[in-house]
Every structure is written in structure tokens, then in C-alpha cells.
Design a protein around this nucleic acid. Structure first.
Lengths: 205, 205, 205, 205
DNA sequence: AATGAATGAGCATTCATTCAT
DNA sequence: TATGAATGAATGCTCATTCAT
């Protein structure tokens, strides 16, 4: 049986694929049983590889969880920046942010569980996470709010940092409730409801 | 030497005190290292008792965490109901709820960490918790919003359940940020900022 | 409330009674769950006393088990010697021994379980036991057999020690089977069957 | 470097060898300190492996003890049936059974200790054991005795079940005494003594 | 004598990680 | 690269025993 060629994309694809497979498996497993209750062998089993192979791609169980966040956040922010570049209006921007937030997490329940539940399971992790992608995310919201204030569409007495947290907190709660709910319902439509209140409260006059 | 009176505080105090001591120690330890990384012997050590003694008051490590939440939520809700009974105005009620929320958690950082971080660390736990005190809490907020709608002070097209989640989510995010922040600042004042936006968005007219 | 008088039998009776109660409780508990699976608190509970009280009468859990055997063997041997003193005939003596063996254990199932099962659970214990009462018991049987050989009723080429063990082993097996059996049947009648073979052998003619 | 052949003994031997090593180590350790006083790490140490490795081959400490009995009984019964198939005469058969019983246990003192002592240490275990191999063993003896009765060499008024127990009990007692004895002596010769009485009885003439 | 709360040594089992093949 | 057998540190919980009252 010939081995795959080592040169170029083919070999790289294999590597990427296996890394991907492990991450996907980990998301599923973590979502199902929680990070601390998941065994590395569960992940390997789900990914269809041997336990030891996991360690060829990740240094530790912890690193797998980190990689899940890092990759997802990077993707999300990259995609977000691209989309937002095309929108000038602050209200439109925030609307799109809220929609994307709920669309993204609403599209992958396991990923949402990991984000809403597992990410919160340790102060250490949350702090690392805050320092990383999450801070950047809040920053984008904050700047958009500032733009709105400068453009005169948002009240100037509201602190942008706080407003950003409020919007984020409201969206986050929507996701958490959706994740924990026994009923299945589409998450994205909640964006409108949140924004209706948020804008109502932010609008000047 | 006279034995302590059996009626009331003295004898009871011993039992209560040790249970209390364990709970307090657990809150501190869980806050510092997270539930899964905390050893029962850490809690016992912090409480100044032997490991085995923990099991005279709690059936398992898990039960300690549950007890922390149960007790705190019961206290909070009882106190809240009492205070709110004296306020008729829905806006005043929600204002007081937000203030109490942040006062309570802002007064005990370790407890806040446990609530914001450890409570979220497992889907199972969150679901149990949702079913228990948390659901009741959201319900109180929701009813007050409904009252406000009926009184004509809040917009009627907003769904009360969603609005309740939004307010809760915003407050929750304030706490989480405060807990994770390296800077020390008072939490309660954030209530005003949250409410300013929330009411601005909820007000009819 | 007056304390019981310290002088004489009354006080002694109390002590004896509580010791007795503990031993009886222990026999019941050991029979039910086995020595290693029985907790001292089980015994105390069964005896209706506090855990600590057990240690006023016995130095350790181990000593309770020892006491059970010591007492039972002493009683059995004392009673046996008395009865046997009145029988001259070796065959009659052995018959009575076998009957008493099965009567005694057949009269108290829990005690029988402890003797047949728990006594065997440790080499150390068995050796101590062998050295103690059990050795004396085998000795009585052996001497009786020797008497029978000298009187010409038993074959002289049989070693008395071995014959004693064989008789004991056969009786012992009857008890063990009775103890483990799900069916309830009277144990003493088995004595006749054992002796029939022991005296007469299996061979026809 | 060639890998070991997958077919047959080599690869299989590794697994079997380690399982075997654990069982052998367990027999030695159990014999020395008793089941309840033996730690899993004692067994692992004796077998020259890490503690955790034990659990790759056995689900629990309990399962190790069971495996010891299961394997030994299966072997013994299989071997016994084979040998007995070649003997027609009931007397010869019983003789061979008694010899094999004592040869087998007399050849491995540790195994004998485990059988005579540990097996008896719990009612639960004894009942399971009775239901398993032991019952079959007694059955073989019983049938042989019945054959002897039908052939006219054994007295018909003796109940075969009882006689089987008597023979077994006598042999068992020989082993127990040998195991507990401080003196070293060969066990197999005792078979003759037991059978002499079992077949011929004690009575002279 | 009696109590029972407190102690703390002890142990089976798990599982992340390694490494020889 | 991939495997999966082996490792061994780590820990929740039990329970015999003590001792202040």
C-alpha cells in the first residue's frame, strides 16, 4: 500500500484533516460530557484514531480546548471584520454583529455548548480567554458604539465599554438559554429582540 | 462544669458553625482553584478540620457545591421578595433587583467567582440550577416587566421573557467582568448604567 | 436517677449483659455481611449502644471476633466434657460428640455462619484458632478413638490423629453445606449418616 | 527488525503471560496476607508491573480472586474428567479422585491456602463458588458413589449425596490441616488413610 | 460508664501521558 | 506517522479508633 506523497498539499491535507478530526471530535465529546469528564481516549475514539496519536497533534488535553477557542474566535473575528468592512452605519454594524453572533453559535450546538459552558469552567481559562480573542471582540463592539456616539445616533452619556458589555451580556444570555433549553428553537431571530431594546435605550432622543 | 443548654442556639450553633465553616472554606477554595482542581483535603484544611469530618456534614464533594448554590439562592430570593414587597412601582422594583444583584455578588468576591465561573462549568449543573433557584429569579423579573407593560410604562411589543433574560444577561456580564478584572472597582454602581440603557429601550414612547 | 449499685452481682450483670449484647450483635452482623464488610458501628447499632461504648468492652474489632470463638469453644468443650464423662463406651462417646457438634451449630445459624465462614477468612486467625480451642477439640476425638482401638472396637492400623480429622472434616462439611444451603433442614440427623460411614464404611459386607 | 508473528503463540503469549503473572502474583500475595489485607499494589509489585496495569487485565480486585478459582476449578475438573474416563471401577474412580484432590493442592501450597482459606472468607463468595465449579465436583463424586451402589460394592442404605459430602469434607480437612501445619509433610499419602476409613469404616471386623 | 463527634491513615481505581515498536 | 500497552501519580471516601464531655 503506497503511502501518501510527502510533498506539498496532499501530505499537508492529511495533517490538517487529522487535526481537524480531533478538534471536531473533542467539541462533540466536551459538549456531551464536559471537559473534566471527558477522557482523551473518548476523543481519540470519536476521531477514529489511537490514543497516542492525539499527542502528535496536541501537547495536552488542555491544549485541545484552547485550540478550539483560538480557532473559532480567529475565524469568527476574521469573518466578522470582513463583513463589517462593508457596512458604514454603526447601527447596521451592531445589527450585523448581533446576527452573526447568534447565527454562528446557533449553527453548531456542540460548539455553542463548549463556548457557553466549558469556557466558563475555570477562572484561569476565562482570564486567558478574556485576554485573547474575547477582548478583541468586545473592542470591536465598543468602537462601533463610539462611532455611533460620534455620529450622534447614540446617547453620549453612556460609557461605550459598559454598553458593549451589556450588548454582549444580553446576546450571551440568549445563547446560554438556548443551549440549556429542552425546546428546540432558532436562535438568530433573538437578535432582533435584543437590539430592539438595546437601541431603544442607546438612541439619542 | 455546666453543659451548654440544649435549647436553641448553643448546641445548634456547633453543628451549624462547622457546616458553615466548611461551606465558607469551600467557597474560598473553589474560587481559588476551581471545583475540579480543588481537593476535599484543601477544603478541610482551609476549614481547619480533618478530611473525614467533611463527610459528617456533606455526603460528597458535589453536595458541597450544590449546598453553596442552594443556600445562596434561597437567601437571595427570600431577602429579595421581602424588599420588593415594599415597592409597588415596576421601574423601582427592577431598579432594586439590579442593585441587589450587584450588591450581593459585589460584596463577596469568592462567592461571585463560584457563581459566575463554577456554576457554569457543567451542563448538568447548569440545568439543575436553572430548574431550581435561577428559574424563579428570572420569573420574578419577568412578572415585574409584565406589570410594567400592563401599567403602560413599558412597551407592549417586547416579550417579557426575552426582556428578562436581557436584563439578567447584562447584569450577569457586569459581574463576570468584575470577577475577571484585574482592577478592583465597586460593582453596584454598574446597576445604574445597565438600567439606563435597559429602561431607555423598554420605555413606551 | 440512681445509678445501679456497684457492689456484687447487679453491677456485674450489667457489664456482662452489655458484653453479651455486643457479642450477640456481632454474631448477627458478621453472619450477615462478613467480618471485613461489617462496621463497628453496625455492631453498636445492632446492640443499641453508641460506637464508642464497644471499646469499653473490647479492645478492637478483631478482639470481638476472637471473643466469639473463645467463648463458644470454651462453652462447648466444658459442656462436652461434662456429658462425655458419663459415657464409657468409645462408640457412644463419638456418637455423642457428633450429635453435640451438629446440635450446637444447628441451633444457632448465625453462630454457625460465623464459625464456618468467618473463622476461615484468614490464615492468621485459623492458626490462632487451631492453637486454641480447636486443637483441644480434635484431641478429645483422637483420645476417644485411641480408647476404642485399645478396647478392640476400632481397627488398630488406622492412625487416630487422621481418623479424628476425618470425622471432624466430615461433620464440618455437613455444617458448611447446611449453612450455605438455601433449603432449611434439621442438621442434627446428619450425625447418624456420618457415623454410619465413619464406623462401618461404604463397602457392602 | 521483524515484528513478532501475529499468528498464534508469540503475540498471544504476551497477553497471556501478563495475565498469568498477575494471577500467580495474586495467589502468592493472597496466600500471604489474605484477600482483604492484600493491596492491589502488592499484587502489582509482586508481578513486577505498575498498579494501573492490573486493570488492563482485570476489572477489579474481586475479579482477580474469581479468576483464580474459575481457572483452577476448570482445569481441575477438565483434567479429572479426562483421567476418570479411563477408569471403570467406582472404587478406583473415587481413589483417583481423592489422590488427584490432594496431589493438586499439595503441589501448590499458595494455591491451597487461597482455596482453603480465602475461598471461605465470605458467604457470598462461597455461595457463588458452590453454585459454580464446586457443585459440579461434588456431583461427580456423588454419581460415582451411585454407580458403586448399583454395582453392589457400596451399601445401598447410604445416601449418595451425604456420602459425597463426607468424602469431600474429609479430604478438605486434610488439606486445611496441611496448610495450617507448621510441619512440612507430603499431602497425597493422606488419600490412602481417608479412603481406608471411607471404604472400610473404623470398626474392626 | 456512655456518648458520638472528630480524626486521619489507608486504598481501589482512573486516566493523561509516554514510548517501544 | 501511528499505535496502544504500560505507567504511576493523584484523590474521593471509609471506618476503626480516640477522647472531651
Amino acid at each position: 500500500m503506497p503511502k501518501p506523497a510527502r510533498n506539498g498539499s496532499a501530505a499537508r491535507a492529511v495533517v490538517t484533516d487529522k487535526r481537524e478530526a480531533i478538534l471536531r471530535a473533542a467539541i462533540k465529546v466536551f459538549a456531551g460530557k464536559g471537559y473534566f469528564n471527558s477522557k482523551v481516549s473518548d476523543i481519540a475514539g470519536e476521531a477514529g484514531i489511537a490514543d497516542g496519536t492525539v499527542y502528535l497533534y496536541f501537547k495536552s488535553k488542555d491544549e485541545i480546548l484552547h485550540s478550539i477557542f483560538d480557532r473559532a474566535m480567529a475565524e469568527f473575528i476574521a469573518e466578522g471584520k470582513k463583513e463589517l468592512a462593508e457596512i458604514a452605519d454603526p447601527v447596521g454594524k451592531l445589527t450585523r454583529i448581533a446576527e452573526m453572533h447568534l447565527e454562528r453559535l446557533g449553527a453548531d450546538r456542540d460548539m455553542a455548548i463548549v463556548f457557553q459552558v466549558e469556557l466558563r469552567g475555570s477562572t484561569k481559562f476565562m482570564q486567558e480567554f478574556s485576554a485573547a480573542g474575547f477582548g478583541e471582540y468586545l473592542d470591536i463592539i465598543r468602537k462601533t458604539i463610539e462611532d455611533g456616539q460620534n455620529a450622534g445616533v447614540f446617547r453620549k452619556e453612556i460609557k461605550p465599554v459598559v454598553a458593549a458589555k451589556i450588548l454582549y451580556g444580553a446576546l450571551d444570555e440568549m445563547v446560554t438559554n438556548w443551549v440549556l433549553s429542552k425546546k428546540a428553537y432558532p436562535l438568530p431571530p433573538m437578535a432582533g429582540e435584543v437590539l430592539s431594546i438595546f437601541f431603544g435605550g442607546m438612541s439619542s432622543k
